[in-house]
Design a protein around this nucleic acid. Structure first.
Lengths: 230, 230
DNA sequence: GCTAGTGATCTGTGATCACAGTTCGGGTGC
DNA sequence: GCACCCGAACTGTGATCACAGATCACTAGC
């Protein structure tokens, strides 16, 4: 009988869960841009299910503020104002910086190894002859979350995941349109600083590196002027 | 025609929104305790609607981690382990402390007046001859959120609201069972410290006061031993 | 007396239908 | 030629039905 105890709990995945992930991926990767509309029936048809699971997925995304239902009942990706985006960036700097500081102060050797691998993977892609921007976005995300996962606070990790979902459409839409920012590699410097701080166990330095990384990316996007003012 | 522009956008409230608020209130006030099960059909009947709106509300609460669907497909309030609760309290100390520090550093006079009023209201209730614990819980919440609302970052405010929803069942269930903690009034001291720090514009002191308030409440509950270990 | 099984009743999940309100294109009136 | 209007096709929201699986009280079997 003890052999049965070793069977893994097989995960129960509802169609709504799958639909949520599909839509979240569309948003996080910037393929759904701010202002784009989303139809329940069309999405359901594309996913090959009825509207019910899509409806549930969308209602979660609306609760997260990643989608919104307009006054006309149309579902769309919210159009962030410059002020909204700035507040989101400041919140991310504070929270993600805090998570990085905690990681620096209590990371295990295994954590450190995972972070080193992620940093190397991103660097390799960014410095390659022909970097794939979609792949670079993924690797950048992997590196950031390798750091956050090691902070030791699961609720904090979840909060950051939600913040990324919210910022995703704006950031990655911009990146798809202007991939040259990656090539200039000024994320690379901040990543190296963060890694060094985490290796040294220097919390404040790790927080500063992450905050700088986020601030610079946000300033770059805002200087582009693609965000409305009011 | 310009007079029409001053009409307030009347909010579109779906039944699902109403159901969400009703359930959230049940959870935040501790009337739904960890481990309690929730039936969609029974809830729908109690609210006088079909299962659809309840379903949507529950799916949002599940996404927030405030409810969970067990492996047997039963919906229930998650049973937090002592470790879970400690991690949640630590996250709250960090994030709510940060919000309080921002408030101290940039609060307007109007913010300060609102916080003073909320502090006085809570104090009056806690020091009254026969304090009403439900009312005290509400006033405590009002005071905390008066502080967080003045931090200037809307996303941070939303994050804290979600954290309170998650902690609500544990904290308020305990408070309903043992209201004497309120009477000892050691929240009062922390509140006074926070108010003084915000008046003085001292960010670190405000963060410390809030963190101490949260830590002491959490330690009190954990010392009670009502939480499972693993 | 206690266990194993069995059927009625509950559960959440998904599909389908109904409805009010919105959008949009194609005409008709001027 | 242009503004208006009307209707078809769409939108999200809510109710209802269908279904597989879980629960639980109860009984048959040893």
């Amino acid at each position: 009988m003890s052999a049965l105890a070793e069977l893994p709990q097989l995960e129960r995945r509802t169609l709504a869960d799958t639909a949520y992930e599909a839509l979240a991926d569309l948003l996080a990767s910037g393929r759904l841009a701010p202002g784009d509309r989303l139809s329940l029936r069309q999405s359901a048809a594309a996913l090959g299910v009825s509207v019910m699971p899509v409806r549930e997925a969308v209602s979660r995304l609306v609760a997260d503020g990643v989608l919104e239902v307009a006054a006309t009942r149309a579902i769309r990706v919210p159009i962030m104002t410059a002020q909204d985006f700035r507040a989101l960036a400041e919140t991310r700097m504070a929270i993600e910086g805090m998570a990085a500081a905690r990681t620096a102060e209590r990371r295990s050797e295994a954590d450190l190894a995972a972070i080193r691998r992620a940093e190397a993977a991103f660097r390799a892609e960014a410095e390659s002859a022909r970097p794939d921007s979609a792949q670079a976005v993924r690797l950048n995300r992997d590196l950031h979350f390798a750091i956050y996962a090691a902070c030791g606070l699961a609720p904090l990790h979840e909060i950051i995941a939600r913040l990324w979902l919210k910022a995703g459409p704006v950031i990655n839409l911009d990146l798809r349109a202007h991939p040259e920012r990656l090539l200039q590699g000024f994320a690379l410097r901040r990543h190296a600083e963060a890694l060094a701080a985490i290796e040294a166990g220097d919390g404040p330095a790790a927080a500063a590196a992450l905050a700088a990384d986020i601030r610079e990316a946000a300033e770059f996007i805002m200087s582009r002027g693609g965000l409305r003012d009011t």
